[in-house]
């Protein structure tokens, strides 16, 4: 059994509503987190992402300037000079399936519907730390594997094509200079 020490992690909370930011910060501190940064819109969130390199981002969907989906898309750029693999938890009042699918297709790691609870947020954070999914890059998608569970009894055709080789990502080496400078 593993336990996560949240004091070792750095968080960024992006939400235009100050009350919700305070609630999330309170819960994170309750879990033991010490480093919690806040941004009140997508633009400020992107700036803090590049300057503070958070380990996990918690972002609201609906925000001025650009929203949580747009922020996620900007972070999930495979050639980004900053960590494009950072776990992103989408915190939102939208619970419709179409919205969940849209968030998933933007590259969101976890989806958390309001009203928020300590238990639900804790569970999403554990998923990010202990059970991260591989990343998939296709012509039109870069983000966590959207197949959360492997279906052992799936009998249909394999939609993804066969493996052709394993290579090292040469591009990621250049990330260091860009991010630390």
């Amino acid at each position: 059994m593993m336990r996560v020490d949240f004091s070792k992690l750095r968080f960024l909370v992006v939400d235009d509503n100050a009350h919700m930011r305070r609630i999330v910060r309170t819960l994170l501190h309750g879990f033991g987190a010490r480093e919690v940064y806040e941004a009140e819109d997508g633009a400020a969130g992107l700036e803090m992402f590049t300057t503070h390199l958070p380990d996990i981002i918690i972002v609201d969907w609906s925000m001025p300037i650009f929203d949580g989906i747009e922020l996620t898309s900007m972070i999930r750029r495979p050639d980004s000079a900053v960590n494009p693999f950072v776990p992103i938890i989408m915190l939102t009042g939208h619970s419709e399936k179409s919205k969940v699918m849209r968030a998933r297709d933007a590259g969101v790691t976890e989806f958390l519907c309001k009203p928020i609870s300590a238990k639900s947020l804790h569970q999403r954070l554990l998923n990010c730390v202990l059970n991260p999914r591989a990343f998939i890059k296709t012509r039109d998608y870069f983000g966590p594997d959207r197949r959360r569970n492997i279906n052992a009894v799936y009998a249909g055709p394999e939609r993804r094509q066969s493996e052709t080789g394993i290579v090292a990502d040469s591009g990621s080496l250049r990330l260091r200079d860009g991010a630390v400078s």
Partner: peptide, 21 residues
Amino acid sequence: LTRESLEPVPIQVFDDHMVLR
């Protein structure tokens, strides 16, 4: 500011997608 993205990432290449771990 040295975080885990700043290192090589193993990639499996398939015909129509890549898997990065």
